[in-house]
Computed example of a mutant assay.
Amino acid sequence: MLLELKDVHVHYGKIEALKGVSLQVDEGEIVSLIGGNGAGKTTTLKTISGLRSCSSGSVFFEGADIGSMPGHRRVLAGIGQAPEGRGIFPGMSVHENLLMGAYARKDDHSKELAEAYELFPRLAERRSQAAGTMSGGEQQMLAIGRALLSKPKVLLLDEPSMGLAPMLVQQIFSIIEEINRRGTTILLVEQNAQQALRLAHRAYVLETGRIVRSAPASELLDDPQVRAAYLGGDVGGGDTGDTAGAEGEAGKVALGKTAPETGKADGEDAPDAE
């Protein structure tokens, strides 16, 4: 077992954001975490990466309890993250942003740098350009490339398709699949639930801070209840750009909801509700 959460509770003041979350990610897998806005998906990733502390419960990585390990040491241990909203350094060049991913490393990172430029040729073309002047899709590529510079064993991806045009969404998911094929385990939080379930090996459904379903992703994709609540009904055909609104207490996951490709995604400036 590469990564495991056991009965994890997390609080924001008196508000309990995670209510006993338990999940497992095996080496080599793509595991997807789906759920409505405010379900606790981003909080789960932040707890794994050390940006949020557990009120109770445990986080294990490669069999060791990392609950008290600071975030920068988790990066060195092999946990990389491309955060929601991308979090690039706008005034720095593309190349400088990528190098920030290797900031804590003391070994040679030239191989990972070359692979990032290979995976994202557009970044190579714009290596001297200020990151803040790039499009939203390019910034998302940069955020993922920067995370890869830390040489992660598991890569945490938080809403990588948010705000991107459909063509770029397909490109990002193809690259995620290639990253996994090259040996990196992936834990994916994604608003495009249909695409996420088609890509993942296994998936968990998170509602109001609790895991309510876990199964092979293909099984959840075909489950009538999951389809009705999270995939907008029929998922057997049609364009993956179709949308389903996020509504109701459980929160229905938007399916491929897109915005014009800009340097900033819709709602990017909104406070983290998870």
Rank of each mutant, 00 (worst) to 15 (best):
R126W: 01
Y117L: 12
L123I: 07
N192C: 11
Y103S: 02
K151E: 11
A116F: 04
Q170S: 15
S174G: 14
E138T: 00
A131D: 02
L113D: 02
A147I: 04
R105G: 00
P160K: 01
N192S: 12
L155M: 03
E178Y: 01
L188T: 04
P121C: 12
E190W: 06
R122T: 06
L149F: 07
K111L: 13
I144C: 00
G183M: 10
P166I: 07
N192G: 10
L188F: 03
M100K: 12
L149E: 10
T185I: 10
V154F: 03
R127L: 07
I175H: 01
G163Y: 06
L156S: 07
S161K: 12
E138M: 01
A147E: 04
L142Q: 11
I179L: 01
R122V: 08
R198V: 05
S110N: 12
L119Y: 07
F120I: 03
L157T: 04
K111C: 05
R198A: 12
D108V: 01
R198C: 11
P121I: 10
G163I: 06
N180M: 07
Y117C: 08
E177L: 13
S150M: 00
D107S: 15
F173M: 15
A165E: 13
T185D: 08
R105I: 07
L164C: 06
S150E: 02
D108M: 06
K153W: 05
E159L: 08
N192L: 08
P166Y: 13
Q170D: 15
I175V: 14
I186C: 02
E125A: 11
G132M: 07
L148N: 02
A131Q: 04
M141L: 09
E115H: 12
A196F: 01
R181T: 11
P160W: 00
K153Q: 13
Q129E: 14
G101E: 01
S161H: 12
L187V: 05
F173Q: 04
